Amino acid sequence: MNLAISNIAWDRADDEAVYTAMQQAGFTGLEIAPTRIFPPQGDPSDPDTYVGPYDNLSAAALFGGYLLNRWGFTVPSMQSIWYGQTGNIFEPADTEALLDYTAQAFQFAHTLNCPSLVFGCPRNRSCNPPHTPAEADAFFDHAGSLAERYGVVLAIEANPPVYTNYLNGTADAFALVKRLQNPGLAVNLDLSTILSNGEKLRDFVEDIGYVSHIHISEPDLAPIRKRPEHAELAMLLKAVGYRGYVSVEMRRTTLDTVRRTLTYIAEVFA
């Protein structure tokens, strides 16, 4: 199984210590939050001074080369792709700017040879009257077409109702992707959502072909607990021949916790 971990789980100062632990555990993927690597600089309201996370493609290429040549890692996924953005996909006045920003993310991912970008963005997708969920189809269809142009996919992630009121169930994310049938769209299977909603992994066996990336996560991104669902998921993925990455996603925690988690997940998904 291809294993990765998201770099939101530790401090920047611990990067090399975690990379070493990843190598020892057999992990080959580093999922990134772009602003964790390239923090925005300058004033966002001043285009002459502001430098966003996706503005330096040369730096992205150098970072990708460093990961591959020094550590043997690829970047299988990007998350938090709209960090700092305030627009909403249901507001017509916001969609053009959001799509332009997303296209920058796609170009950045292409430069990194990163195939999948997670679309969570719960604050940017709340659906309030008079808008209806069906209105989002046009946005995602356009976004999927942009993704295909750059040779990547936008992986739609369901988020529980505590975070947003649109695409709350895993089945909703699959339904959107199957309905649009856009090659630039896929599903990010998020275990924390499945756990929070009381969903059953077996209900999604026939849909795994639509999955481009998987998050092993806990509700509220707490440190990973040992759960029977992990072994169940590993068996399911092997049975259907899943070839993507399984990635650990936790909020920032201690270096020891990261190391223990890497060892545990490597054992379960061996």
Rank of each mutant, 00 (worst) to 15 (best):
A136L: 12
D137C: 11
F139L: 10
F139C: 13
F140Q: 09
F140S: 05
D141I: 10
A143E: 02
G144H: 07
S145L: 13
S145R: 14
A147K: 08
E148F: 11
Y150V: 08
G151A: 07
V152S: 08
V152K: 12
V153W: 02
L154W: 01
E157V: 11
E157R: 12
E157G: 07
E157M: 12
A158M: 07
P160M: 14
P161C: 12
P161A: 15
V162D: 06
V162I: 11
T164Q: 14
Y166A: 07
L167W: 08
L167G: 02
T170A: 04
A173Q: 05
A173Y: 03
A175L: 07
A175I: 02
L176A: 07
L176I: 04
V177I: 09
V177G: 04
K178G: 04
R179L: 11
R179C: 07
G184R: 08
G184L: 08
L185H: 01
L185G: 00
A186Q: 05
A186I: 05
V187S: 01
N188L: 15
N188W: 02
D190A: 04
S192A: 15
S192I: 02
T193W: 00
I194R: 01
S196Q: 12
G198H: 07
E199T: 07
K200P: 00
L201P: 01
D203E: 14
D203T: 06
F204V: 00
F204E: 01
F204T: 00
F204W: 00
E206D: 15
D207P: 08
G209F: 14
V211Q: 10
H215M: 03
I216P: 02
I216E: 00
E218T: 11
D220K: 12
L221P: 15
A222E: 14
I224L: 12
R225P: 04
K226E: 14
K226L: 09
R227W: 00
E229F: 11
A231Q: 15
E232H: 06
E232Y: 04
A234R: 09
A234T: 03
M235Q: 15
L236C: 12
L237C: 13
L237R: 10
V240M: 09
V240F: 02
G241S: 10
G241V: 05
G241E: 08
G241R: 11
G241W: 09
G244I: 09
Y245I: 02
S247P: 00
V248H: 02
E249R: 09
M250F: 09
R252H: 13
T253M: 02
T253I: 00
T254P: 03
T254G: 10
T254W: 02
